[in-house]
Amino acid sequence: MSPEAGGEPATSPIRQILFKMHSRCNLACDHCYVYRHADQSWRDRPQVISRATIDLAAARIAEHAGKHDLPFLTVILHGGEPLLAGPDLIDYLVRAVRGAVTTDTKVAFGLQTNGLLLNREYLDLCARHRIRIGVSLDGPPAANDRHRVYADGRGSHAGTARALRTLNEAWNRPVYGGILCTVDVANDPAEVYRHLLSFDPPEIDFLLPHGTWDRPPPARGPDRGSTPYADWLKVIFDLWYEAEVPQTRVRLFESVVSLLLGGPSGSEAIGLGRIDLVTVETDGTLEQGDVLKTVAQGAPATGLHVRWHSFDQYLEHPGVRARQSGLAGLSAECRRCPLVEVCGGGLYAHRFGLGREFDNPSVYCADLAAFIGHAAQRLAADLSRRV
């Protein structure tokens, strides 16, 4: 790859491969970016990824790892609901990837699930292959079951909570990855946080509900200066920050603190780090991140397929290059902002709209500024006391 000015490579290699194991789900969550937003391409895709597609993708992973001498890769099993694919296919994928990667590259596996199908067979499989399991839960029953429901309207909390309690048993802890929680400001933040902590997760990640300027998130009204999401997150940040012994990692909070101190981000949602992810859909097409499904029909598409195209060719796609362009890829307003090194313009899809496509600040701009400012004040006060 040709270097840019300053010696930086034009693109960074792929280090995260997200496999769509199954294109359907056993829930009908009303905030799901796969089924409830602009892109509906899931309707035309095979329900389950084939072994032939897995083999092709495994070969591409090995090719990329070898060409770029990668020390590590992460493979994420996703959906829909990935457990619908069945344990045999998950076992086949892990073996195929590990068998194909003959370099010194370390391959880690993760799986994101609602937990409803998690049983002893899956737990044993994940233990055998060292697959870390992340579970989606939005809080206590009333909070979670406002959005995460079955097609007939029944809530999913009881089944997901049962899965989390099972993961927290001593023999399952090695595969317990953590909890993903979508923010709903109608819920009490302290109550949500305490409930998530009751499952003793190794990590929690808070996800802002997806939206764009054309289709704003639920609590973003006409007042662009309001900060309902920041106000919600601040409550939990203070509880987390003030704990004498940190009870669990919170990825968003750790990323903000790290960035404020000049370190890296651990989250795609914040900071100027390059996005190093490719999605392999059930039909073998290579797509950008799922969150772009909130933008428009076909927004994540690249026109590439794992049979005919390498990951290096994927990196040359204009959309992928835009997501790896850092500061240069942000709007003029973002580039002028003193918080840009920390905020990074927020999640890429959240900038879309207003007739300017992605050349906007995040629809969460005011929230991000308020939250980062709050974290900075807490950190500065602590540091001044220690000087």
Score class of each variant (00 low, 15 high):
186 A>I: 01
169 E>H: 14
224 R>V: 09
157 H>L: 04
198 S>G: 00
178 G>A: 12
157 H>R: 03
213 W>E: 09
189 P>T: 10
176 Y>M: 10
238 D>H: 03
225 G>V: 09
238 D>I: 03
159 G>Q: 02
170 A>W: 05
187 N>Q: 00
203 E>Y: 12
166 T>Y: 08
226 S>K: 05
197 L>N: 00
219 A>G: 00
173 R>C: 15
170 A>N: 11
196 L>A: 11
171 W>K: 06
218 P>K: 03
217 P>S: 11
154 R>F: 12
197 L>A: 01
162 R>Y: 13
178 G>Q: 04
190 A>N: 02
208 L>K: 06
184 D>P: 00
201 P>Q: 04
190 A>H: 02
210 H>G: 13
160 T>S: 06
190 A>I: 02
169 E>T: 15
175 V>D: 08
166 T>P: 10
177 G>P: 10
174 P>V: 15
213 W>D: 06
240 W>S: 12
214 D>K: 11
159 G>H: 01
218 P>H: 04
205 D>W: 09
178 G>K: 00
169 E>C: 15
211 G>K: 13
156 S>P: 06
216 P>Y: 08
181 C>Y: 05
161 A>F: 06
199 F>H: 01
232 W>S: 05
217 P>F: 06
217 P>V: 07
169 E>P: 15
212 T>Q: 05
203 E>P: 13
209 P>I: 10
194 R>S: 11
216 P>V: 10
237 F>T: 04
223 D>Q: 06
171 W>V: 11
157 H>W: 02
203 E>R: 14
178 G>E: 01
218 P>V: 03
183 V>Q: 02
175 V>G: 14
215 R>Q: 13
201 P>S: 13
171 W>I: 07
212 T>F: 03
178 G>S: 12
164 L>P: 12
227 T>G: 03
163 A>G: 12
210 H>S: 11
166 T>Q: 12
170 A>G: 14
154 R>L: 13
176 Y>A: 14
187 N>W: 01
175 V>F: 13
155 G>T: 03
164 L>Y: 11
233 L>P: 08
189 P>Q: 10
192 V>R: 03
231 D>N: 10
158 A>C: 10
165 R>E: 07
235 V>K: 08
218 P>L: 03
205 D>H: 13
154 R>Y: 14
232 W>P: 07
236 I>D: 08
185 V>C: 07
202 P>K: 05
217 P>Q: 07
172 N>R: 10
216 P>S: 12
228 P>T: 07
236 I>V: 12
169 E>D: 15
192 V>G: 00
159 G>D: 03
210 H>Q: 09
217 P>C: 11
236 I>N: 09
187 N>S: 00
154 R>N: 13
201 P>Y: 05
239 L>A: 14
169 E>L: 15
192 V>Q: 02
205 D>E: 12
228 P>D: 05
224 R>C: 06
238 D>R: 04
199 F>Y: 00
185 V>K: 04
168 N>L: 04
236 I>M: 09
215 R>I: 10
227 T>R: 01
225 G>K: 07
233 L>S: 09
170 A>K: 08
189 P>C: 11
157 H>D: 05
156 S>N: 06
195 H>F: 04
233 L>I: 09
208 L>N: 08
173 R>L: 15
177 G>W: 00
173 R>Q: 15
239 L>M: 08
206 F>S: 02
232 W>I: 05
236 I>H: 07
198 S>T: 00
197 L>W: 02
155 G>R: 00
169 E>R: 14
205 D>N: 15
207 L>D: 08
174 P>E: 15
191 E>Q: 10
160 T>H: 07
